[in-house]
Design a protein around this nucleic acid. Structure first.
Length: 500
RNA sequence: GUCUCGUUAGCUCAGCUGGUAGAGCACGUCACUUUUAAUGAUGUGGCCGUUGGUUCAAAUCCAACACGGGACACCA
């Protein structure tokens, strides 16, 4: 039963009284002619005037009432629009007969959206305000806002009812404006570099391009299942085959896996592919991209992140094996010997078994001893082949791949490699994945014959990279949960939502 | 999936070793024409997450469940 709350009932009654008094509580139109930010900018000189006011200026601003201080025949209100808060001054004698006593004092309250016209002045306490002579209610809020001082802190309510969070916490609005700007700048950066933005399917007949469990949906007309995409990779590479030489896509991926501070079932990534380039070119491009964001976002190169400080003047590049000893402090004599690694892991009470390959064990060492220590942006290169199923082998060393991952603040941000473009090799790797699938690995790739066929027509040597946009935004916005950079993070339905 | 903490008024939170439910904000009424979380007076407002158990008696103790936070695990 909606609206049964007594406060809501009370406010519905006020809306009714407003209607009866001839004021539509849900107006269709506003005469707002300036934002609060602009108002403050244009009138910053009022301080210096003799009377600290200029009655010849006239502005109409609009916003939501956040504070309402009634002091008898006059009131101070704070109204908020998208970017700022403005104090307005209402006095009985400056408003039409009866408006102040019968309408504003009785029927208007915190949460309502109003429009006010008047002239700028500075109060005794020095605050630039609007001296109101015209008042109009635009929208009546029948639900009361949360407490004015503490606002809303319950994370569950903040995520489920993001609109309330946005009303009450202007910092949250700031974060999402930053998010929008980062995505916009990303688009501009790649366009300026000559990349073409493309859109590839979100519903795939085969869930490919990554190892992950997909969501399944059904196409009624065709009578077949489709998978929400887990990665756009295989489609973007088809476009390189087709002759586009640099493409990128910023969009959602869907993975049917766990949720935590860095995972949401749908997340945004950018993937980009450039023909006639290698992963080494992408290291250069990635550095340039990150510095571009830092500069355009007006962020410091010594970026604070929680307790950490990330130095964007200190890009590090180091091969994985070297990082094990130099950063992970694992003895050099251990890192290339399978049995010694197994013993070492056992000594440190870490799980490992004899079936793991040398490459997998090196990966394990990296995860345990190196990853969390990579605070400044670090490109880890020369990944072992066994843990890089999609990357091209190095021509000079068949055990390693032409690949890097970028880590910042102990977290993986990007993954890139020179792409495998040998169709026969690709076919063989798909076959191996099918074997793995039949052996019970439900995250193994499925065969994508059409992709193999595409490669058979020849794909120019190409380098490709994926960057987790949400995690990058977390870094730049100093947020520590992915939910705080997603407007509507995935939540379990509530009981009432279930019954719907 | 495991561990852990939490769920009390619209919001923010108290409520101790069980004994008829508390505050601030908001809201109602009154006063107040330069306030800054305005102030003063006064009043209304609770399925104490849900279900069960122990007890003469449960917001409080126990169990299960639901939802959430945090950590860990899983996840290229």
């Amino acid at each position: 039963m909606p609206f049964k709350n007594k406060f809501i009932q009370q406010r519905i009654e006020k809306a009714k009284q407003l209607k009866e008094a001839g004021f539509n509580p849900y107006q269709n139109q506003s005469n707002k002619n300036i934002t609060i930010l602009q108002f403050k900018d244009v009138n910053s000189d009022i301080q210096t005037l003799d009377n600290k006011r200029d009655e010849n200026r006239h502005y109409i601003v609009a916003g939501r009432i956040k504070l309402f201080r009634i002091m008898g025949k006059a009131s101070f209100l704070k109204i908020e629009d998208e970017n700022d808060v403005l104090q307005i001054y209402l006095a009985r004698d400056n408003l039409p007969e009866g408006m102040y006593n019968n309408i504003i004092k009785k029927l208007i309250e915190v949460g309502d959206i109003i429009e006010v016209g008047g002239y700028p002045f500075v109060t005794n306490k020095g605050e630039l305000s609007l001296h109101v002579s015209e008042f109009k209610l635009l929208t009546k809020a029948i639900a009361p806002l949360p407490e004015k001082f503490h606002g809303i802190t319950d994370k569950e309510i903040r995520y489920r009812k993001r609109y309330l969070d946005l009303i009450m916490n202007s910092d949250v609005r700031k974060t999402f404006k930053m998010r929008s700007k980062i995505i916009s700048l990303t688009r501009r950066f790649f366009e300026e570099k000559g990349f073409l933005e493309v859109e590839t399917p979100m519903m795939h007949p085969i869930a490919g391009g990554a190892n992950a469990k997909p969501f399944v949906t059904h196409h009624n007309a065709l009578g077949i299942d489709r998978y929400l995409r887990i990665a756009p990779e295989l489609y973007l590479k088809r476009l390189i085959v087709g002759g586009f030489e640099a493409v990128f896509e910023i969009n959602r991926n869907f993975r049917n896996e766990g949720m935590d501070a860095t995972h949401n079932p749908e997340f945004t990534s950018i993937e980009f592919y450039q023909a006639y380039k290698t992963y080494k070119d992408l290291i250069v491009l990635t550095k340039e991209y990150l510095l571009y964001l830092i500069e355009k976002m007006d962020l410091p190169c010594l970026l604070p992140y929680g307790e950490l400080e990330i130095n964007f003047n200190n890009f590090i590049e180091i091969p994985l094996i070297e990082s094990l000893s130099k950063i992970g402090k694992v003895n050099e004599t251990i890192v290339n010997d399978k049995q010694k690694i197994l013993d070492f892991l056992k000594q440190n009470n870490l799980e490992a078994n004899q079936n793991m390959t040398l490459g997998q064990l090196q990966g394990k060492l990296f995860d345990e001893f190196v990853e969390e220590k990579l605070i400044d942006p670090t490109f880890i290169t020369e990944y072992p082949v066994d843990i890089s199923p999609l990357a091209r082998r190095d021509d000079d060393n068949q055990d390693i791949t032409q690949r890097f991952e970028l880590f910042i603040a102990g977290r993986e941000i990007a993954n890139a490699f020179s792409e495998l473009n040998d169709p026969v090799d690709q076919l063989e790797r798909f076959m191996k994945q099918i074997d793995a699938k039949e052996a019970g690995d439900d995250e193994a790739h499925e065969m994508d014959q059409d992709f193999v066929e595409a490669l058979s027509y020849g794909m120019a040597p190409t380098a490709g990279e994926g960057i987790g946009i949400d995690r990058l935004i977390m870094l730049l916005c100093n947020e520590h949960s992915i939910r705080d950079v997603l407007l509507f993070p995935a939540m379990r339905p509530t009981t009432t939502e279930n019954t719907n």
